[in-house]
Design a protein around this nucleic acid. Structure first.
Length: 311
DNA sequence: CACTTGACCTGTCCGC
DNA sequence: TGCGGACAGGTCAAGT
């Protein structure tokens, strides 16, 4: 789920909440979520403190004092939620649940019982919790991921730029030097595909996903299924402005919560309330009142105003 | 090579 | 109420 604005929102929250804290322990239930958790964890994670929290594309980089970094991708359903400390009430409730002869899930066995009525941001850990980082002051950072697509890796900070994804990922669309002409040049790398596929291609540019592809294309009145080679430079220049507009607006609104996304404090973002086409199928286009249609482009659910957005 | 499609997972919703 | 199928914000590997 999380695209650039959501990951940036989490980054800003974590920067405020965990920089300077010391990690004293880590628990993880699903090997794929934290594939290289072994000897390095003992030596370079436990006892290390958080130096900075950065973002590149949709990836979070938590730099540690040990010269290692935690590299985290939330993929579709990942969350990073900081909890200052377990309340007395929480501990009692957990004890109560554990005390009963309640059927426990595998996660509950590993992490201790979660609350049975967890809402979007309920008591943690819950059954989607994959990794727990414990800090020396009693606070914790939970990596939750319902679909298990996301991952956390511990790497030497100097090796981070060498991972395959970073070697081929495109430029940051909100960087000062990402001009309209750079955008046009990048998008035209994929001349023979659809504009939506080009925007979603992380090697073309970084951080755009399904929401902001649809929203920016609506803003620029370009049909997502249009071939890049059939789109004029003038149209692409408009798309550039619209893309930067929706990304900045969404960061201002704390991102989009369509299903699972929450920020570092477990709170929803509100961009979806400002969306013009995304998830608005069968509703009127805010520009021309035509009913918005949903179809499939580039293998993804795609929202279009059939009047404003001509192929 | 350029581009498209499935797979990775769990959960939810919708129609029968 | 149950059950099968489609679908969900991302990225790879495998296919055409």
């Amino acid at each position: 789920m999380p695209e650039l604005p959501e990951v940036e929102t989490v980054r800003r929250g974590l920067e405020r909440l965990i920089v300077g804290k010391t990690i004293i322990n880590v628990e993880h239930d699903w090997p794929k979520s934290f594939p290289n958790a072994h000897a390095d964890v003992e030596q370079f994670l436990k006892g290390a403190s958080v130096v900075s929290v950065k973002r590149r594309a949709k990836v979070l980089l938590i730099e540690l004092s040990s010269s290692y970094s935690l590299v985290i991708h939330l993929k579709m359903t990942g969350q990073l939620v900081f909890v200052a400390e377990a309340t007395k009430e929480t501990r009692n409730k957990k004890h109560e649940i554990r005390g009963r002869a309640k059927k426990e899930t595998a996660t509950e066995l590993r992490f201790g019982a979660g609350h049975p009525n967890d809402s979007l941001v309920g008591e943690l850990p819950d059954r989607s919790t994959r990794v727990i980082f414990a800090f020396s002051d009693g606070s914790r950072l939970y990596f939750n991921d319902q679909r298990k697509f996301g991952w956390v890796r511990l790497l030497p900070t100097l090796q981070v730029p060498e991972i395959d994804f970073f070697k081929k990922v495109g430029p940051e669309p909100l960087a000062d030097d990402f001009t309209s002409s750079v955008f046009i040049e990048r998008v035209r790398i994929r001349a023979n595909t659809t504009i939506k596929a080009a925007l979603l291609d992380q090697t073309v540019l970084a951080g755009v996903g399904n929401i902001y592809a649809d929203e920016s294309l609506w803003g620029a009145r370009i049909h997502p299924a249009s071939k890049v080679k059939d789109i004029t430079d003038r149209q692409l220049a408009t798309l550039y402005s619209e893309l930067r507009y929706v990304l900045n607006l969404s960061i201002e609104k704390g991102g989009s919560t369509d299903r699972n996304y929450v920020n570092a404090e477990g709170k929803r973002g509100s961009y979806i309330d400002f969306a013009r086409v995304f998830r608005r199928e069968r509703l009127p286009c805010p520009r021309c009142n035509t009913i918005i249609e949903k179809s499939k482009v580039a293998g993804r659910g795609t929202h279009v105003c059939p009047t404003c957005q001509i192929r």
